[in-house]
Nucleic acid binder design. Structure first.
Lengths: 212, 212
DNA sequence: CTGGTATGTCTACGACTGTAGACATGACCA
DNA sequence: TGGTCATGTCTACAGTCGTAGACATACCAG
């Protein structure tokens, strides 16, 4: 191909549709993650990508469609959750404690979700993105019955930790010892991974609460 | 007193500073909870209170100060968490499952927090509100060492459930059976209420992870 | 009854938003 | 080398935002 596919150089990008589209999309993910859907403007997204605001709408149609593609891209590539069910809670807890530590890179799809959820349209887009990518995948991994609600409960826990530790930044949790946090999260996630037999009459779940 | 303290009638409110201030504040809580800090405009808050936008700034100084008072009011009155430590997880789990059910009134400080957290200034205000009201209170109730981070972890869990069940509205969690959800939440909260011995050298916490 | 003041409204400003149409220019093909 | 279309920019338009100052009115004291 004779087309210029130079994406490594930092110089002014020559006219290249796919590279420009990519730059806009990456810039959008970064901006939406940092400012949220309402807080990030198309001019800012375009500026960080080195183009004009109008080009964004030419490539993506509208801000909303740009957000939809950004969400799809942000949630799709990385395996947010460990694949192996046996060590699922262990690896997930460790990764979550690491990623939410005060000296992390602050670029994560959960942050994108939390800071954009206020907008109803954005929330709807996020819902489909969560379902299609992590939710469905996680439901397949979780053993036992009623995997879907437990998977979403696990996502709730993860999102809550992201919220309080990085967005609200409550001091005791933000400065919590990483190993201690990992252990606590592990214990919590174990409860969700080990499926209860769904006995609606009694409360005798194995390894569950000790009856008062 | 000869002052007109008519707050029950629905007719046009006579000139009454305190009643007007109250109406604006209640309208602000409702609007911020529904639309978030960025999404709610002062004209909308004022209109719902039956006054003009400028009066809002005259009474509260600015939108940001109005939000601060709204947060303080929203988190202060109700005892968000049960007072009795023995039945803390039980009552908290039950209340959370009830309040996040699809047919609830959708007016809760956690919704206000979730939909306003995207704005950095709003997040800061929320952090102090959370600390002063629920966080400190909950830390005093929780038994064992390291109560503060575990209290905030409990708040993370609650906020996460609110997010996924009501804001993002993931279907499996939004439509989850209320009793089953209550049981799951109870099991999770029991882990947080029962303090680990905080062994920072080893990992041999009872009921904790099995070392790989 | 009459002034004074607290209470509430009106008009408007500058900044910002998402988006549309007209225009310019660079890159590739013949 | 010249033409042509994709690629990118410029100007602009309604609309909304938070906020400020000037103005109007209702209420209470004398």
């Amino acid at each position: 191909m004779t087309v210029d596919t130079d994406e490594s150089g930092v110089g002014p990008r020559r006219r290249n549709a796919s590279a420009t589209r990519e730059a806009i999309l990456n810039s959008a993910i970064e901006a939406f993650t940092r400012l949220g859907y309402d807080g990030a403007g198309v001019r800012e997204v375009a500026g960080a990508a080195g183009v004009t605001a109008m080009l964004v709408n030419r490539y993506f149609g509208s801000k909303e469609q740009l957000f939809a593609e950004a969400v799809d891209r942000a949630f799709a590539p990385r395996t947010v959750i460990s694949n192996d069910p046996s060590e699922l809670s262990e690896r997930t807890a460790t990764r979550l404690a690491e990623r939410t530590s005060p000296d992390a890179d602050d670029l994560d799809p959960f942050l994108l979700m939390l800071r954009s959820a206020a907008n109803p349209r954005a929330a709807e887009i996020i819902r489909t993105g969560i379902e299609n990518h992590v939710g469905r995948h996680l439901t397949d991994i979780l053993p036992g019955p009623d995997a879907a609600p437990r998977a979403e409960l696990l996502l709730s826990l993860i999102a809550g930790v992201w919220l309080m530790r990085k967005v609200i930044a409550t001091p005791a949790l933000a400065g919590m010892d990483q190993d201690a946090l990992t252990r606590q999260l592990h214990d919590l996630m174990e409860v969700l991974v080990n499926a209860p037999p769904a006995t609606s009459d009694g409360e005798a779940a194995p390894g569950a609460i000790s009856p008062s």
